[in-house]
Design a protein around this nucleic acid. Structure first.
Length: 280
DNA sequence: AGTTGGACCTGACTGC
DNA sequence: TGCAGTCAGGTCCAAC
């Protein structure tokens, strides 16, 4: 499932493939994937003929600037993929939106579960786009230091794992990297977020940067379900380095204790080492 | 207002 | 073998 490193990987590849190209044709086949628009037709018209002038990432979202005046926001949800392909290929299954580009290539949005969606918004200032206003700081930017992280965590009653996945507290972290960051920071993901000390916030921030930067270097994580692939359809490489996520019952890489899985009230699992991430 | 939990959705997997 | 049931989780929204 695409989190910050996966979105960053795709954004970087999009800069190579589609930046400076014009969208000559758009076909949207699934209204759910453009649900912020009145119709698939309206979405197609909003994109058609536009020059892609800039490509950015904010949190888990990818933003393509159109004609230096509008923003095409891509939210991949759980199973969304962006893939470049040859127009001679048959349309892949679940390819709900197909952009034909002036380069001759196609950019396809594929999403079996249709949790993700695309939308065109007016304006290019990210902080003013709908859904972006309340997004927390980027963990890899200077906007976030240990004091700011601690301050943000101190204002919630949630447990640490839930707070890290709260996009209003920090942008871009989901289940995989929440588990990994807590492991590397040696913090128990079930501890109350508001009790994180300044020293612990420092460890958390260091782990955040190390994990996310390394995951970007390896082009993201393709977990067992194989749902994430990059723009060229290749799986990521960071799954080889996972220390906690989906390793329940396997030995901790530090102390060999069996990795635990605790289900949150919504049934979702949190993975951690009960020994080296002991409750404080 | 902050937090929780169900709904959305389908492919992959499990068990009978 | 086949089919029903379960799991996966990002985000929205309703209800505490």
């Amino acid at each position: 499932m695409p989190e910050l490193p996966e979105a960053e990987t795709i954004a970087r590849q999009l800069r190579d493939e589609v930046l400076g190209k014009t969208i000559v044709r758009v076909r949207a086949f699934e209204a759910r994937c453009v649900r912020t628009h009145g119709s698939t037709r309206e979405f197609e018209q909003a994109c058609r003929g536009s020059l892609i002038t800039e490509i950015r990432r904010r949190g888990k979202q990818i933003v393509l600037t159109l004609d230096a005046s509008r923003s095409l926001v891509v939210r991949l949800g759980m199973s969304g993929r962006l893939l470049v392909g040859n127009p001679r290929d048959a349309r892949p299954q679940h390819a709900h939106i197909v952009f034909s580009l002036s380069s001759g290539l196609e950019l396809r949005y594929i999403d079996p579960r249709t949790f993700g969606h695309l939308s065109v918004r007016s304006g290019t200032e990210l902080s003013r786009l709908p859904g972006f206003e309340k997004l927390g700081p980027e963990p890899l930017s200077d906007d976030l230091d240990e004091r700011e992280l601690r301050r943000r965590l101190s204002r919630t009653r949630s447990i640490l794992a839930v707070a890290l996945m709260n996009q209003r507290i920090v942008a871009g972290i989901g289940k995989i990297y929440s588990d990994e960051i807590c492991f590397h920071a040696r913090l128990n993901p079930l501890m109350p977020a508001h009790s994180v000390s300044l020293l612990q916030a420092r460890r958390l921030l260091a782990a955040m940067r190390r994990v996310l930067e390394s995951a970007i270097e390896h082009r993201g994580t393709t977990a067992a379900d194989g749902s994430y692939v990059d723009l060229y359809g290749r799986p990521g490489g960071y799954q080889k380095f996972l220390a906690a996520y989906q390793r329940a019952g396997e030995p901790c890489l530090r102390c060999s204790t069996s990795i635990a899985r605790v289900a949150l009230s919504n049934g979702r699992g949190i993975h951690f080492c009960p020994k080296c991430q002991r409750f404080p």
